[in-house]
Design a protein around this nucleic acid. Structure first.
Lengths: 229, 229
DNA sequence: TCAATAGTGTCTGTTAGACATTATGGA
DNA sequence: TCCATAATGTCTAACAGACACTATTGA
């Protein structure tokens, strides 16, 4: 029993955008306040396709820009979702997108939106919850196949910033010396002339993303990870 | 009510199933003959959702079973596709699924369907081509995070079979001794009492998939892979 | 001065890849 | 017999992780 809206008027599909940015040691997702009496108090920014959206990604980008007042640094489709009963839209089908916002680049969200660490999400509709989970999983998968980590950082950053981003993407702490050695070997970053001092401790040199050469194939073979499907 | 497609309205979305099985040293995809005059001669098995499909995956599973005359050993959604002009259906939107068929488990396809190695695909609609490419990419990503490789093999197999499957998923040749050492460490397989002789050479022992314990976290960190988005 | 963070050098156990060797069948 | 494939043992260079140490700031 879905909402009593004339079936002919029911939208074909809706689009959700899961926007992620680093906050502290965790990823955070942008949620917007839901209208009163809609079941949940917070929802993922969503919308419906419009005639001038040539591609699916145009719809996602439009919704993201509207929620952020700026464009995300990266977006990717997560998939189509139909299970789970409630969704803010009445659509049977929702296409999910994940987007990134660089560290510190988000304007302070107003009263109608807020960044929630993914380990402390408020109650959400089952479908939106599933889309968020898939979005984080996708970002984590992309972390070691493409430098999506740098989309979560501004154009210059400290190596400690970068390590924290990798740690939140990989979900585990990393060894500092090993991290920097691997980074050196990968020639992904270049130092700048700038330094940044934050509170106590020695100031850190700022680096920029500057991939120089293709890495050679990974050494070896792994039968790792969970066995779950 | 979704199955009642009024003639005036185009269907909301179609579902494509990309079914993959090992053939020789490459993955092959099942294609079915297209009706005369439809633009292409071969198409990926596809269909439209029906009322009794509770979830998206039900539609995909139904289409796959119909094309195979059996159920695939594994299925996963690939995503939603809308770009590319032509598609066998008239739908603006296509949800793609990828499925696996174990080595040798496919019945000889009749005149109306055939397995094509993914390196020698016939002309296809742009959208279906994109869905195939994404399906293969998804399977390759899953190869080292879950033992999807075993879904491409029958219940017992030789270690050379397994290595060939990993090679087609990873897209590179592997070192035999290293492969077996890593496999041993992963405790993913157990030997059976059976042996199989194929042509010349020493007969190979048959193994079965029997994961015994969780692997410990991967050692180290990689900044590998391509930098392309 | 102490505390905190940045950054680097060295050592060691692990291991991926190379190579060699034996085993066992078919042609 | 020759050849092809299976299966395994050994060696070595590479390297992840541990540890220690210096450097440089703010409190």
């Amino acid at each position: 029993m879905r909402d009593r809206i004339s079936p002919a008027r029911r939208p074909g599909y809706s689009v959700d955008t899961v926007l992620l940015t680093p906050v502290g040691r965790h990823l955070a997702v942008l949620l917007v306040r839901a209208p009163e009496g809609s079941g949940e108090r917070w929802v993922v920014p969503w919308g419906l396709p419009k005639a001038h959206d040539a591609a699916l990604s145009d719809t996602g980008a439009r919704i993201a820009r509207s929620a952020l007042a700026t464009a995300p640094s990266w977006m990717h489709q997560v998939g189509a979702f139909s299970d789970g009963r409630r969704h803010p839209s009445d659509a049977d089908l929702t296409i999910g997108f994940v987007g990134t916002v660089p560290l510190g680049a988000h304007v302070a969200p107003g009263e109608d939106s807020a960044w929630f660490p993914i380990i402390e999400l408020p109650p959400l509709s089952p479908r939106q919850r599933a889309i968020i989970d898939s979005s984080v999983a996708l970002l984590r998968v992309k972390a070691d196949s493409a430098p999506v980590a740098f989309r979560l950082l501004p154009s210059t950053f400290t190596l400690s910033d970068l390590q924290r981003v990798y740690e939140m993407l990989l979900g585990q702490r990393l060894h500092k010396a090993s991290f920097r050695r691997a980074l050196q070997a990968a020639t992904l970053v270049e130092p700048t002339e700038e330094w940044r001092s934050e509170g106590r401790g020695r100031p850190a040199q700022l680096f920029k993303y500057a991939p120089r050469r293709r890495r050679r194939a990974r050494r070896g073979l792994r039968f790792d990870q969970v066995h779950a499907w």
